[in-house]
């Protein structure tokens, strides 16, 4: 499979790329783990019962999976130890740091907005279960 023609880049010879370096394997593992965690978050977002519990899935799964996938791809692209390579690594670290800071903050803002809007949390008490969740359309 070669997608390099899309960027007009020279096509790399397949036989050169046949074996993976250790960095690339590390990066692939990290990205795969990130995808796994994102699967958990997506399924949670799909089937949790109410707004607050969905927030749990979204707020946490989002942070860690983006973090792992970005770090994984940073390792995959980081093959030469030039100044530009380090700069790229630093930039990706910047994105990771930014997501780590902002994701809980926006989760918290949404949570507060929902709470003050009067969405009732679902509890295990069967009486309140009927009212909770889909109160406001």
């Amino acid at each position: 499979m070669s997608f390099l023609f899309l960027a007009n880049a020279p096509v790399v010879d397949e036989s050169v790329q046949a074996e993976l370096s250790r960095l690339e394997i590390c990066g692939m593992t990290l990205a795969g783990l990130g995808l796994l965690f994102f699967l958990g978050a997506a399924v949670g977002l799909f089937r949790f019962p109410d707004f607050y519990t969905r927030m749990h899935a979204a707020g946490k799964g989002d942070t860690l999976s983006s973090l792992l996938i970005l770090l994984g791809f940073a390792l995959i692209t980081f093959d030469d130890f030039s100044a530009l390579g380090w700069l790229l690594l630093l930039k990706i670290f910047g994105i990771v740091l930014f997501i780590m800071l902002t994701s809980p903050t926006s989760t918290h803002a949404l949570m507060r907005a929902g709470f003050e809007d009067g969405i009732e949390p679902v509890t295990n008490n069967p009486k309140r279960k009927k009212k909770g969740g889909a109160k406001k359309k």
Partner: peptide, 26 residues
Amino acid sequence: QIVLANAHVFKLAMTREGQKEMSPRV
């Protein structure tokens, strides 16, 4: 802690025991 949190969310979302364990509260 974030890794632990994600494993927890994963368990809640994917397994049946997780669904039973859930009892949200404020």
